[in-house]
Design a protein around this nucleic acid. Structure first.
Lengths: 229, 229
DNA sequence: CCAACACCATACAGTGGTGTATTGGAAGAT
DNA sequence: ATCTTCCAATACACCACTGTATGGTGTTGG
């Protein structure tokens, strides 16, 4: 689901097409999430957001009761985006190869899974046990879906767990380290990773299709040129 | 290297045994790191530290020029602890099995590798390009050591890279998700992980020795009872 | 046409933080 | 015994931010 849509839904504002006269609750929420992602929760200050939005804080306190209400709305956006994408990719019908490739797409498309938001929220939870519990629950749901996926495709319980952990933790580790590589490099690892996770060879035709699908999404790779093979 | 020792070295204070009359630079630094780990960099406030240390801020400004000088000292402690442990474990002589098990010990012993400090620093770097560069350099050093390790034990370049990434990212992902499992559970995964990373069976005797070594370190596992097999 | 509403500006009180300047006091050196 | 030196307390000026109360203005509907 598109993030702006989610933000608006959480903001409980059905966007009538007539351009909103001034600011909406969703505008504040969007800027706040941007700030969270780029500078952490402690940079989410009403004063700063007001400056960025070119209004005074008076506007904020019309849309929100206080800062805490904003924070709760932010968390709600997170809860309804990243986790859902992973679970959907893992539980759709099809072969194991289809599922793994669908998850790879998740890892590559920030509209489906935004790692910066995920880690900003984790960071936010530092020293906040209640928030940590919420996050742990989402992680559990994600892991359960992955374990069930491997189990449904022939792996014994223990093997399914290890493979799911490898799959999920490796990707989270990759994000945690803030690795910055061109998409072409990431694509070049796809087949090898696939074999590591499944012990099967990746069908060359499927890999080609995957590359095509990614390359078609120009928005994912900026100016870079990616050879089709 | 013991963390308190490092903190004191960075503080350039050879600790004469006579109990220091009041506070040292290292005391402030230690509390600041504790605060960083538990509540993030934005919680590292001179006022709060002074309260915790039961002195006024006047003391702080005798030991440090300003808050920034404290932050630089904190970063220096991080630089000289975690990365060194990993590189040492990966580059020591011996078989691949020895190396992997040495690294597993790193992952289990916070004196060698403190994941909470590592991630607190990474979060601290959010929105700070200079700090991100410092961290990226440390990550590169760690990865290089791991790749060289796999390469030195018979894996081709590409395979060595994938295996090193899998090994390192999986562990970082585990920490990033703040997983809390008893040590006994983590130990039960050791052999399976080993086989995933190396494609070799873990020698039962080596595994038993490994368990013994961990169990001997009671400080790592609190009250828990771990069966020797 | 004007009244009500939606949205924003302004002004104010209060809190928590930084950094500086100055003073106070206890231990060790002479 | 006093004199430094080291370390900490106090007081002050100065933000940045929160939240509240109230007033102002453009837009819409009756």
């Amino acid at each position: 689901m598109k993030k702006r849509q989610l933000i608006e839904r959480v903001s409980k504002e059905a966007e009538e097409d007539h351009a909103q006269p001034r600011l909406t609750r969703a505008d504040w929420l969007e800027k706040a999430l941007e700030m969270l992602i780029e500078n952490g929760i402690d940079a989410v200050r009403i004063t700063r957001l007001a400056d960025l939005l070119r209004v005074t804080r008076g506007s904020f306190y019309w849309h929100f009761a206080d800062r805490n209400e904003l924070l709760e709305a932010m968390l709600e956006v997170w809860q309804q985006s990243n986790t859902a994408s992973i679970i959907q990719a893992a539980t759709a019908p099809g072969t194991l190869q289809d599922r793994i490739l669908a998850l790879f797409i998740c890892w590559l498309d920030p509209e489906l899974f935004d790692p910066r938001l995920d880690f900003a929220v984790r960071d936010w939870a530092r020293g906040d046990a209640a928030l940590q519990a919420v996050i742990a629950q989402s992680d559990q749901q994600r892991m359960d879906a992955l374990i069930a996926m491997f189990a449904a495709h022939g792996f014994a319980e223990r093997q399914a767990i290890i493979r799911a952990r490898n799959f999920y933790y490796t990707q989270m580790g990759y994000y945690a380290l803030n690795v910055r590589e061109p998409l072409s490099v990431r694509l070049s690892y796809v087949a090898t990773y696939f074999e590591t996770y499944t012990d099967e060879k990746l069908d060359p035709q499927a890999e080609a299709d995957f590359r095509q699908k990614i390359i078609a999404r120009r928005d994912l790779w900026g100016d870079e040129r990616i050879p089709a093979r």
